[in-house]
Design a protein around this nucleic acid. Structure first.
Length: 221
DNA sequence: TTGTGTTTTACGACCTCC
DNA sequence: GGAGGTCGTAAAACACAA
C-alpha cells in the first residue's frame, strides 16, 4: 500500500509525502523498531489493520504501517475532525474510536515531549543566570577589597600627618572620612557583606581571582 | 528464561464548546 | 446534550539486562 493510495484524498498531498516519505517516530529507537517489525513480519500480517490472532481483543498493537500513516496524518494536523477520523479509520481498517484514541495518546506524548524540551531550555537559561550572578558577586568582592585597602591607606596617611604636629583641625578630616563609609560598623563593610553571602576567604581575593570563589548555596539546590 | 523498566493502547472522569 | 478535548491510569506489548 503506497502513500498516495492510502491518502488519496485532500488530507495529505504529494509534496508532503515527498518530504516525509519515511516517517520516523519521535521516541522509538530504530533498533527497537526493527525488532518489533521483524517480530510482526514473521506473522505476515501487513494488511493494515485486519488483526486476526487469538490474543486479547481488548488491546492490540497497530501495525507499523498503520502507525506510520497515523503519524503522517498527525503531523499534518494534530486535531482530528470527524470526517478525517472516519476516513483514516476506513483507510487503515481500524475502528474510528481507535483512531481517536491514537490521536489522543499522540497529543499527550507530544505535549510531554514539548514540556520536557521546555524544561531543559529553562534549566540551561537558569544555569547561565547563576553563572552570571557569580561573576557579579565576585566583582563586588573585588571592589570591596579595593575599598578596604584604600580606607587603610587613608588611615595610614592621616596618622602620618598627625604625627607631624598638625593642629586640632585634623578632627574634621577624620569625620569626613568616616562619612565615606569607613567606619567598622558600616552596613557595606566587607565583613558584613561576606556574612550575608556566607563567604570566607575574601581577603585573599586578588585581581586575577576570577571565578568560582563565589558559589551561592542556591546553586546546589 | 525471567524479572524489570518503558512504551503503547484503551478507558473513565471531567471539562469546554457549539 | 453531544462531540471531542485533556488528564490520569490500567494493562498489554515490548526491549533488554542478568
Amino acid at each position: 500500500m503506497d502513500n498516495q493510495q492510502l491518502f488519496g484524498s485532500s488530507y495529505v498531498d504529494a509534496p508532503f509525502f515527498a518530504a516525509n516519505g519515511t516517517a520516523q517516530r519521535e521516541s522509538q529507537p530504530k533498533a527497537r523498531r526493527r525488532r518489533r517489525k521483524a517480530a510482526r513480519c514473521g506473522g505476515g500480517d501487513g494488511n493494515g489493520g485486519e488483526m486476526d490472532g487469538g490474543g486479547d481483543p481488548k488491546k492490540r498493537r497497530l501495525t507499523d504501517e498503520q502507525a506510520e500513516m497515523l503519524e503522517l496524518s498527525f503531523r499534518e494536523e494534530r486535531k482530528l475532525e470527524a470526517g478525517r477520523k472516519v476516513y483514516l479509520a476506513a483507510e487503515l481498517g481500524l475502528d474510528p474510536k481507535q483512531v481517536a484514541v491514537w490521536f489522543q495518546n499522540r497529543r499527550a506524548r507530544h505535549k510531554s515531549k514539548t514540556l520536557e524540551q521546555e524544561f531543559t531550555r529553562l534549566k540551561h537559561a537558569h544555569d547561565a543566570d547563576i553563572l552570571h550572578k557569580c561573576h557579579l558577586q565576585n566583582e563586588v568582592l573585588r571592589l570591596k577589597e579595593r575599598l578596604r585597602a584604600t580606607e587603610e591607606e587613608v588611615q595610614r596617611l592621616r596618622s602620618a600627618a598627625g604625627n607631624h604636629g598638625a593642629s586640632g583641625d585634623g578632627g574634621d578630616a577624620a569625620g569626613a572620612v568616616s562619612v565615606c563609609g569607613g567606619s567598622p560598623g558600616s552596613s557595606f563593610s566587607t565583613g558584613t557583606w561576606q556574612q550575608h553571602l556566607g563567604f570566607s576567604g575574601a581577603n585573599e581575593l586578588g585581581p586575577d581571582d576570577d571565578l568560582m570563589m563565589c558559589v551561592p548555596d542556591c546553586f546546589f539546590a
